[in-house]
Design a protein around this nucleic acid. Structure first.
Lengths: 249, 249
DNA sequence: TCAAAAGTGTTTGGGTTACACCCATGA
DNA sequence: TCATGGGTGTAACCCAAACACTTTTGA
């Protein structure tokens, strides 16, 4: 009954929720499955973990094979292990999310025969994804939302040079809220994590904006000191009041 | 090479970091391993996951077998899968932490032949635990620290009736900081999550304190409205100033 | 009467919120 | 000259931080 051989009949995989930002919308990279099960369904990119391969290594491999990108922000989120989540056997999956600069991603290399396509996260959440990939996507998205309010990971999604407005749009897309322009700028500037490049946008049909760069050096210093960067959720006061009143019935 | 049979040669386990609070110190329940590998080392309680068993089910089973407790706070934290983490084969482990009222835990049921013992977390972190259990313990402890600042999970560690001072000690033990008594009380009271029981401690050699109870009902209402409960880290201002100056060199 | 913990208010400063108008560019 | 986003300051408010003495009990 409780012999080792009974236990070594399962496999594990990694699935990777790859987020990108096109300047407007938060996106996730999905592949169209070429084979059963769930043939022709959209799915998160993933693969079985090789017997002598670390988990994060596997996640990085999936990412590299699909996007050609290395050294990308990658973080483990949660492990999904419902007994029946995979129709062909007991396969648990470790979910990762990664943040890529969408402009760096060029074309699907041939090793993935399937079609890969960026979907807006909002739309992807409404699709019927393969396996339990809807759960995985939702969990990873929530994790990203939480993360982005506490740490400046948003920069991983932007090109090296960006405007404050783009940065704000990114936060708005991830947090799914509107932010006040002046307060946002004050807050970001006061974090001292941006380098003013003294460069301007060019060829835009409106007043050109200043370009900034993320100051990784300085961030590491802060981080080492255990500093935290909360970006408050900006819940309107009236809403807070209303909730409070509701509760104090 | 890439045949399924190669992949279905691995196993997975759950390991459970069981936290308790004795009114003074944050504790973790460790077992003394009776068999190799790591015979006689202290280890986190854990077990292989049965082929047709969910992950959380397995974690709950470990908890039940060891403590006799059911319906305990349990949360998945992280999955550890280094290739060589287990000497007898490829075994990845999904780490959970749980919060138990230490008074509810009576005695180790016989199914676990090993000795189980509460260790202060501080001490446990200095032991040489089996496998990668030091990593696991540290990760779970950090997760608990983060969690406790955002959500009122601390109550899971206290008996049903407790004093404000006990609650404060708990927070101090988890966060490893001192908290200001008056500010702490103001904060907690203002959260409106405590029921004043109109009872007093008895038989204590000092002025008896009021007893309170956690208001789960009200908490669920808050939670449903997406309310958050930050308990700030209480970093002294001067420290913040020093860091800031250091960074703005 | 002593030891030990319970209990309680106010001031100060920093940060968050709310809010509206002028500016620079390309078409 | 118009459309489009870029860019800026201030007042009100709230909350966190700092801080010390009196009260109640059992021994």
């Amino acid at each position: 009954m409780k012999e080792a051989s009974n236990f070594f009949k399962s496999a594990f995989s990694v699935d990777n929720v790859i987020f990108g930002f096109d300047g407007d919308d938060l996106k996730v990279l999905l592949i169209k499955r070429a084979n059963p099960p769930f043939q022709d369904s959209w799915a998160l990119p993933g693969d079985l973990v090789y017997p002598n391969e670390g988990l994060e290594t596997a996640a990085n491999r999936v990412l590299l094979e699909l996007t050609g990108l290395k050294n990308v922000y990658l973080e483990q989120v949660h492990t999904f292990g419902a007994v029946d989540r995979h129709p062909v056997g007991r396969v648990i999956t470790i979910a990762y999310f990664s943040l890529v600069k969408i402009s760096d991603y060029v074309v699907t290399p041939s090793s993935f025969a399937q079609k890969a396509k960026w979907h807006s996260v909002m739309e992807a959440q409404e699709l019927n994804l393969a396996f339990d990939h809807n759960d995985i996507l939702n969990t990873c998205f929530d994790t990203l939302k939480g993360k982005v309010r506490r740490m400046p990971v948003g920069f991983e999604l932007l090109p090296p040079k960006f405007t404050l407005t783009k940065l704000q749009h990114l936060y708005e897309a991830v947090l799914r809220t509107k932010l006040d322009k002046r307060n946002f700028r004050k807050k970001i500037i006061s974090m001292n994590l941006l380098i003013d490049l003294d460069e301007m946008q060019e060829g835009v049909p409106h007043r050109p904006a200043k370009l900034y760069q993320f100051d990784k050096e300085r961030y590491r210093k802060f981080e080492a000191e255990g500093f935290s960067f909360e970006l408050k959720e900006s819940k309107p006061k009236d809403q807070v009041r209303r909730i409070r009143e509701m509760i104090e019935n």
